Computed example of a mutant assay.
Amino acid sequence: MKDHEISLLNYHFDYFFQFCIQENNIQVLSHHFSNHKIEGLTVVDGLGTSFSYERDNPKVKQNFTLCHELGHFILKHDGSYFAESIDNQENLVEREANIFSAVVLMPDIVLLSKIYYSCDTFHQVQNSLEVSKQALFYRLSDFLREYYSDNEGEATQAIESYIEGKNSFIFHLFHDIREQIIEEFNQFKPSLINQVKQKVRKVGFTTSLEYPDLLNQDNWKAIKASSINIKTWLVYNKGKSIAYVWDKEKFSDEEAKNKAELQLLLM
């Protein structure tokens, strides 16, 4: 979310999912079994990695399955073949993938933003995140259990009231833990490489005035490796310097240098 400057209220798992499959060249396919016994498959072989999902399942179930399969990949589960079925839900690896899926679909900070700050109803949260009623119920249960382990009954009652359209109980629970959730979210610092890459993708140019760590030339190699179109350099004058990054398809070397020198003069 931070790397791609995604609004918490507009968050949708597909931002992260699409980024992961594109970065890792993962193929996504649909399949169909008449008994719907196989919800999802992950196959890793010499041809690469592929995920598949039951095409006749509801969209919300497909979403959960896709994130579940991504979980096997991101969590580096040992194996080259994983099948999500109704028969193996208690398997440790499958449970880990389920937890991963739930968190990607419904991150802590997003739930806080929607339920506490935006005052969205249960159904509004469910619809905006494209998850099932059951998935959201269990996610909220697991989430609140983490903070209210000594009073699970109160948390369950709050969720049930929330489903019925009564927000005050769950609002109170979120109020007491909101600072912890925000602090945990703020501990994550966006990647310099991703920030610069996103900025250059949008406008074609950026400098160390916006990202001071660009002055550290040790970062340049990784930045240039992130895209074949990205170039980096540095200009200096009278003890002042600016490092700059540009998209060579949008600006020539001379144009980028002129832009950097202009900013240097204005310092």
Rank of each mutant, 00 (worst) to 15 (best):
V103N: 13
K240S: 12
A225F: 11
R95T: 05
A243Y: 02
R139A: 05
D213L: 15
Q22H: 14
Y81V: 11
F137A: 08
C67A: 03
L47F: 06
N219W: 14
S168H: 04
L41H: 04
N229K: 10
N63A: 12
N216V: 12
Y147I: 03
G153K: 09
S101A: 11
H32S: 04
N24K: 09
D56M: 15
D176N: 11
V28R: 10
F82C: 11
N98Q: 05
T207A: 01
T206F: 12
S52W: 10
Y211V: 06
Y117P: 00
N91M: 05
I109W: 14
Q27K: 15
S34Q: 14
Y211T: 02
V93K: 08
F17W: 00
S227H: 04
L234E: 05
F16I: 10
Q126K: 15
K189T: 08
F33I: 09
S34E: 13
S252G: 06
L266S: 13
N219T: 09
F188W: 06
I74A: 07
V203I: 15
Y162Q: 04
R201C: 03
S141D: 13
D247I: 00
H72N: 04
N194Q: 15
K248Y: 02
H12E: 02
Q187Y: 09
L215R: 01
S118L: 12
E154H: 00
I99L: 09
Y53N: 10
A260T: 09
E96K: 12
Y53D: 09
S161G: 02
K240P: 13
L129K: 04
Q62F: 03
S34L: 14
F33V: 06
N258P: 06
T207Y: 01
N10I: 05
L173M: 11
N237E: 15
L144T: 03
Q22W: 11
I159Q: 00
Y15A: 02
I109Y: 13
N237T: 14
S30C: 01
L265K: 07
E154K: 07
R55E: 15
W220P: 13
E183K: 14
Y15P: 10
L47V: 07
F51R: 15
S101R: 07
S85W: 01
N186L: 14
G165L: 01
N229I: 08
V125P: 04
F19R: 12
D78Y: 03
S132Q: 01
V200K: 06
P58L: 10
H175L: 12
L136S: 01
K202T: 14
S7Y: 02
E261L: 13
S101P: 05
K37Y: 06
G204N: 05
L265P: 01
F73C: 02
G79E: 09
F19H: 08
C119Q: 14
N57Y: 15
E255L: 06
Q62N: 08
W233A: 13
S118I: 11
F185M: 07
D176S: 11
Y147L: 02
H77D: 08
R145M: 10
K197S: 14
G165E: 00
